[in-house]
Structure formats: structure tokens, C-alpha cells
């Protein structure tokens, strides 16, 4: 009886996921293997096309740089937040949550104003006499990466504040009382305990930036096509649904592999579980 009740209560949610996620995504993946020239011909075409590979590598590059920078900036900032006195800490958390909950369109728009040809940064640099003609910053990989870092640093900070707060201060005190220098205590005690959290944060940022759409659309445009904008263009501009499905399948494989491999690694590197 409890078993039946448990399944009955779960059924509507499971059905929603099955009908509107399971089936549609499976159908997208299935289309990519239906080519008369052979099941993998769509993928062969993708990996042989110089243009498509450029898009894939650019997306990888942007996602990796965004992850690396967010990791460093997020970790150092989260460190300060975690060690701050309670009142300052809640203010800093508010300051990180606010951009996180503000929409991606609004946050990308801010960088359009800042980086535009007649934008604030160019105006300032011109006024200061540092440059003589406005720099082309929009629609470059640089503008996409800056906006992505802006997008994901709050997420990294909030993830890592939780992780760092979970490391008891007694441990570093113990290390110090046993003669460890602060640097050694950090390297040998704090860092190993923070590694699983660093991995979780990195996975969130990497998959988020690898699959983003609005930011590369607004700040990269046609010139800096990324996987997300490329998928949209194939699906809704050229109506090449099989091509779009192939891009979708590659995105699914990359993100799922990243999540699975990294979470396994996070478990293995967790000194508490091990």
C-alpha cells in the first residue's frame, strides 16, 4: 500500500518529465542517426566541417576561460565573504545574490552599454587620451568572455561560500598549533577539503557557459557564433533541423560527460568520504 501511494504521488511529475523532456529530447537525438548515408554521417559531416569545428572549439575555449577565471575570482572572493563578520557577510551575500537573480538579458545588456563603440569604456578611454579611435570590443571573443564571467562569478561565489563555511576553523587552528605556517595549513588542510566544492562550482560554470544562448547572441553576434547561437541559427533561420539536432546531441554529450566525470572525481577527491 505505501509503495503504491508513493508511486501514485510521483506519477504526475515523472509523466511530465517523460512526455515533455524524455520523448522530445530522445527524438532530437534519434534524428541525428537517421541519415540515409549512414547512422554517423551527420557527425562525420560536423567534425569534417572547418566552420562547425571552429564554433565547437570557440565554445570550448570561451567556456574553459570563463570557468578558470570564475574559479580564481570566485574562490578568493568567497574566502573573504566566508571569513567576514556576520553583518558584513550577509550584505556581501545579498550583493552576490542580486546579480544572480537578475535576468541574463539584463546582465548582458549592461555589457552592451559598457563595451559598445560609443559605450562607456570607449568614451572614458578617449576622454583620458589613452586611445585615439574607439576600440571594437563588441562582437569579439573578449566581450563574450567578460559578460560570461560577469554572469557566473556570483554562482561560483555562492557555491564556494557554502563550501568554505563547511570547513571547521578548528582544523586550521589545529594545523597552526602543530607548527604549520598559514600557507602550509591552507595548502594541506583547506584546499584538499575545498576541492570537491571547487569541482562542483566549475561544472556549473562550464556547462552553463558551454550551453548559453542570450549572452553570445547579444555580445558575440554572428561573428562569434557559439554552440547555443549556432543551434538556434540552424533551427530557426536555415530550418536545418537535422543539423540543429546534431549540434544539440554534441551539447548533450559534452555536458553530461563533464557532469558525470567531474562528479565522480569530486567524490574520489573528497578527503572526508575517503
Amino acid at each position: 500500500m505505501p509503495r503504491l501511494r508513493a508511486w501514485a504521488l510521483s506519477a504526475p511529475a515523472l509523466l511530465l518529465v517523460f512526455l515533455f523532456l524524455g520523448l522530445p529530447v530522445a527524438s532530437t537525438l534519434a534524428t541525428t542517426f537517421g541519415d540515409p548515408a549512414g547512422p554517423f554521417s551527420q557527425y562525420a559531416a560536423f567534425f569534417e566541417s572547418r566552420f562547425r569545428m571552429t564554433v565547437l572549439w570557440r565554445t570550448m575555449e570561451v567556456a574553459l576561460i570563463t570557468t578558470a577565471v570564475s574559479l580564481v575570482v570566485g574562490f578568493l572572493t568567497a574566502w573573504v565573504v566566508a571569513k567576514a563578520p556576520p553583518r558584513a557577510k550577509s550584505l556581501l551575500i545579498i550583493a552576490a545574490v542580486f546579480p544572480l537573480l537578475t535576468g541574463v538579458v539584463v546582465r548582458s545588456f549592461a555589457w552592451l552599454i559598457i563595451l559598445g563603440k560609443e559605450g562607456i569604456l570607449n568614451d572614458t578611454l578617449l576622454a583620458l587620451g589613452i586611445i585615439e579611435t574607439p576600440l571594437q570590443m563588441l562582437y569579439t571573443e573578449f566581450s563574450v568572455i567578460i559578460a560570461m564571467i560577469y554572469l557566473f562569478v556570483p554562482l561560483m561565489i555562492l557555491t564556494l561560500v557554502g563550501v568554505l563555511e563547511g570547513i571547521p576553523e578548528d582544523l586550521t587552528d589545529a594545523a597552526a598549533s602543530l607548527g604549520a605556517t598559514p600557507a602550509a595549513a591552507f595548502r594541506q588542510v583547506v584546499l584538499p577539503m575545498a576541492v570537491p566544492g571547487l569541482i562542483v562550482g566549475s561544472v556549473l560554470v562550464f556547462t552553463g557557459s558551454f550551453t548559453s544562448y542570450a549572452t553570445p547572441q547579444l555580445l558575440g553576434g554572428e561573428r562569434q557564433m557559439m554552440m547555443g547561437t549556432f543551434l538556434y541559427q540552424r533551427a530557426m533561420v536555415t530550418f536545418d533541423w537535422v543539423g540543429a539536432s546534431t549540434i544539440a546531441a554534441i551539447m548533450v554529450v559534452v555536458t553530461l560527460t563533464t557532469v558525470l566525470v567531474m562528479s565522480k572525481m569530486a567524490r574520489r577527491l573528497n578527503p572526508v568520504a575517503g
Binding site: G22, V25, S27, T211, L231, A248, V252, T255
Partner: peptide
């Protein structure tokens, strides 16, 4: 009574790239 993997099914909408989900919903 319930297998633990059900929890993973409910988070699939975050795990599958949103843009892939949007495209698939449009198509199907």
C-alpha cells in the same frame, strides 16, 4: 519504497542544456 534515482529524474531539466530542451519542445 522508492528508488533513489527518481531524485535525478526531477533535476533532468537542469541537467539537459536548456537550449536543447527548448529546441526539442519546439520540434515535438
Amino acid at each position: 519504497q522508492l528508488p533513489a534515482f527518481l531524485g535525478n529524474i526531477y533535476v533532468l531539466p537542469i541537467l539537459i542544456p536548456e537550449i536543447v530542451l527548448g529546441f526539442s519542445l519546439m520540434k515535438s
